[in-house]
Amino acid sequence: MTDKRVSFSGLLLPAALLAPQLAVTAVFFLWPASQAVYQSLLRQDAFGLSVTFVGLDNFVRLFEDSSYLSSVQVTIVFSAATAILSMSAALLFAVAADRVLRGSTAYKTLLIWPYAVAPVLAGVLWWLMFNPSIGIIAYILRGLGISWNHVLDGDQAMILIIVAASWKQVSYNFVFFLAGLQSIPRSLIEAAAIDGAGPVKRFFTVTLPLLSPTSFFLAVVNLVYAFFDTFGIVHATTNGGPGTATTILVYKVFKDGFIGLNLGSSAAQSVILMLFVIALTIIQFRFIERRVHY
């Protein structure tokens, strides 16, 4: 770890300075996380009267449980679709905003504000737009001969949460794509233009490859977002339904633990998610390290 040449002396002061952060971390992060790991190895009977140590049995059961496997699948579809949709839209807008000379600040402002909208509110907005009886999108679709009812149709419910989740995330991706585009040296683009590459060809052969670090970084961030931050969208609009069509993993942890009170299974699911975040964090940090050298 890089260090300062100068440092102050003393032990008590740094200990006191670190105490609040470490205390909060220990009490609200490390202890609960270790409890989750511990509970994932236990099973309670139906009345919560006896607890037995079952080793990895909770995990084994999870992977034999079709509802869990379906939730994994739902999560993969949802997060992949959300990442792709919001990143492509953001890239399109960023490329456009990077091109315009006049009004670019105004456009930026108009594109970034949804970052401030809570996912659950994004869900509620689109829930109204898609409402089968009065929503404008359902109305238009009806005009096109498509009957829309996400309350009954699982695929349509999935589309609803994907659209809501992507809508909110476009602005975040936009900010990073635009920053990435603006850091590409103009001279590179001009050199390509002199070499006779038209705007479209330039985009695919020069701009896009140079944006790949940004894209990779955003892909990881968007996955984390879709996995965890979108809980509110699901909870407020579809409740994981119809059936389990939109039960993403985080929602299932919540449902099984808080509502179903299946503590062992919920804890095991938490632990799996934890491993997933740890893996993503490591990937992200290795990547950032490379970005520093780049």
């Binding site: 009490v27 992060f29 996380a33 989750a36 938490s270 632990v271 998610l273």
Partner: peptide, 14 residues
Amino acid sequence: MLPVEVRILPTYEV
């Protein structure tokens, strides 16, 4: 590495 979403129940208990 430990967002609240992965330690919902135990954190609630604390």
